[in-house]
């Protein structure tokens, strides 16, 4: 039973880390944002796992039930989801502008172009 108790959390950590890895290791700006989404969504899964009470039900008051899962993390994550999509939208807008300005959305090419520009400014 002990394994199953922490199983949720361990998988969630695996999920978070794969998102985190995509953010750091991938060079495509849009892909990085996808990684960020996965990373954040996985943190949401962690929060929601905390709220679960075994044998409980959704926190909508009803005379039939007495045990409810914890509503507070739900509220926090509702807020966090919105924050997440706001960040994604802004990040994508930046990616579009970067594509227009640099002609690419690959990190290494952008950095190369910046170095060239700095070199020519010397």
């Amino acid at each position: 039973m002990n394994f199953l108790e922490q199983y949720n959390y361990w998988i969630v950590i695996l999920l978070m880390m794969s998102g985190f890895y995509i953010v750091i290791a991938h060079g495509n700006l849009v892909k990085k944002l996808m990684g960020l989404t996965i990373f954040q969504t996985s943190v949401f899964i962690l929060y929601i796992s905390v709220s679960k009470v075994i044998g409980g039900t959704a926190p909508i008051l009803n005379d039939q039930y007495t045990v409810y899962s914890n509503p507070l993390p739900h509220v926090l994550i509702l807020t966090a989801i919105v924050v997440g999509v706001a960040t994604t939208a802004l990040g994508l807008a930046l990616a579009v502008r970067i594509k227009e300005a640099y002609g690419t959305v690959e990190e290494d090419v952008i950095q190369e172009k910046d170095l060239q520009q700095e070199g020519s400014a010397e």
Partner: peptide, 9 residues
């Protein structure tokens, strides 16, 4: 733009 994106990430 690139600076802002890096900061965003």
């Amino acid at each position: 733009l690139w600076a802002s994106y890096q900061y965003l990430i």
